[in-house]
Write a protein that binds this DNA or RNA. Structure first.
Lengths: 336, 336
DNA sequence: GGCTGTCAGTCGCAGGGGGAGAGTGCTAAA
DNA sequence: TTTAGCACTCTCCCCCTGCGACTGACAGCC
């Protein structure tokens, strides 16, 4: 009997919380007890809802902008909502658009990822991000050393899965075309077929070639490691939506800052394996109306990540299904 | 005597116009006759200035936000200002920063251009854009065909000046690794050393190889033309500044739209040879508080363009000298 | 003990009025 | 042609007030 009572109460509490979150997502306004009542269809009085809401506020799930306003859900409320209350994902017509998109889009990876952010933005109306797979661990298929100056050369690495990395090398001393060609030959002979890694040592410094060529090769080997260590490409799309998503100039600016700072972006997207949802202060200490939904994808060239950046009050169901749908199709597409 | 009088009047008119523009650039507020008087040091009365201003308004150089406000310069006024009244460029300490930047920055072209936009933004506090040289006309140094799927291959082209172009090819039929290798060989033999152009015909369809390989080569040749026709890379930096530059959410949004739309961006930067300054309605028909200062640069790999996007009321002297300085150093740097 | 109806109280917001300030256009005179 | 003076206009800010929206508390009811 006691249990039953507890169950009832918790059930109602959840229902109120759910209504609070969903109504606020829908309208963006503080939610009043009356609204909750109408939206849940509960057969209790407004006063009861008010008590419930007051208790939710005490537990940190809601705040009042001012005394006589309704409640606004906190990051914690959204977190609880997506963990326990969000309706199960639905197969939406969006899925078809995603499939069609990938069926019709024939682009090299970089441009494909850029286009993918546009798709995600179209689907969700929020800015989005795609991260390409890094070069680490790729098998080298071809290398080139292109002379770009008296003391500079460009190292181009093409990997077996079709990634291309470029790295500028500062040669220790001016080199003739002949010498550079020699270096290119040796490089290709030694490196092609191998994996590139951040720690990789191909023993180029011990190559049996004239000294100037050898010293160039040392620089090139460093560049090779550099290329492998370099953070993956980041593509951002849909910034034009920002002004409609956040109606506050200060917030827009802070989001723009985040989007320009790749490092921040990478940590925000998170490295979890599956879908990651980060809400409000889970992203950074300074409070901000921000939530990030992201998920990983896997293709021949490695693993990457796609995600959407929006306000806390977003339609998580829709966004999650868009992000996961895109990620899945992206993987399938590249596996054909 | 008449001439002298005319000269005097025009001189004063210009002085008033100059003060109007400079004061408005400085403060962002409508400029009153009193302010003009103080700023010019003219020895006439306020009433005279008011007459002058009224006449400028009739000629379309100024507008009044409302009856009892000062004047705000129009796009036409800025245009006249930069054409006739702007003080000659000054060698600023900024020049040193630019030189140091390029001396210390050792990056491959794409990343260098991205970093360049950051430099321009640092110097001017405005968002900036850099356009890389296109691939057209480049000499092919190496080509690769990388299998990325049963019916897809990636074409990689490395040019003599170190540009790398990638293009996905949809093969008409599944191909074996052997066949693709054969295609790659033929491609390299025919194309390396040639120029790639949008119209280029390398006669690959007539190659003396088995039919499937030949049909693949036809697709590859098309991809080659595609790669050459592709619009040059566009790098945008400093969007985080936008919220401080324009205090109006609608404007911020429109500028973000412009920055995301490469086509618009390209036409906005203009194709003029030297420095181009486009103000207000010179950029697009819909009125907008926007001005673009851009200039071309020339490096081994071809010609590109760098520019800054700001409000009409920007410090043109500073921005022009920053853009031109960056462009010049960029050219020098790549010519070492 | 929890739920309900009620009512006073709080707060934000929109609208109106008024005064100050800024700046102009006009006019008549030098 | 320029100047001084003046009346006029318009915005901005502040204050006030009334309205509407909600809540919290309380006392009674199931």
């Amino acid at each position: 009997m006691d249990d039953r009572q507890t169950d009832d109460r918790d059930e109602r509490r959840d229902e109120v919380l759910k209504a609070l979150v969903e109504e606020h997502i829908r309208t963006g306004e503080p939610v009043s007890s009356k609204t909750v009542l109408e939206s849940t269809g509960l057969t209790v009085s407004g006063a009861t809802i008010r008590n419930e809401l007051a208790s939710l506020e005490r537990e940190g799930f809601a705040v009042q902008p001012h005394t006589s306003a309704g409640r606004v859900p906190t990051a914690r409320a959204y977190r609880y909502y997506v963990d326990h209350l969000a309706p199960s994902k639905l197969q939406t017509p969006a899925q078809r658009r995603i499939t069609e998109f990938f069926a019709s889009m024939h682009l090299e990876l970089g441009r494909l990822l850029k286009a993918t952010t546009e798709l995600l933005t179209d689907l969700t109306q929020y800015p989005s991000v795609a991260i390409g797979p890094g070069a680490t661990g790729e098998i080298v298929r071809a290398t080139h050393l292109v002379q770009t100056g008296a003391k500079t050369a460009l190292l181009v690495v093409v990997t077996a899965s079709g990634r291309v990395a470029q790295e500028l090398c500062r040669l220790p001393e001016p080199m003739t075309t002949k010498e550079l060609e020699r270096a290119e030959e040796v490089l290709a002979r030694v490196v092609v077929g191998k994996e590139i890694t951040t720690t990789g040592d191909f023993g180029l410094r011990a190559a049996d070639v004239p000294a100037p060529v050898r010293s160039a090769l040392v620089v090139v080997e460093a560049a090779l490691r550099e290329a492998s260590a370099r953070t993956a490409d980041v593509y951002v799309g849909g910034t034009r939506q920002m002004a409609t998503v956040w109606d506050d100039l200060a917030t827009v600016q802070r989001v723009l800052e985040v989007l320009e700072r790749e490092a921040t972006l990478l940590t925000m997207l998170g490295g979890a394996d599956g879908t990651s949802i980060r809400i409000g202060d889970e992203l950074s200490t300074d409070e901000m109306d921000l939530a990030v939904v992201s998920t990983g994808y896997e293709i021949a060239a490695g693993e990457g990540r796609v995600g959407v950046i929006g306000p806390m009050r977003m339609d998580y169901r829709k966004v999650i299904s868009a992000v996961e749908g895109v990620s899945r199709e992206l993987g399938d597409r590249m596996a054909d």
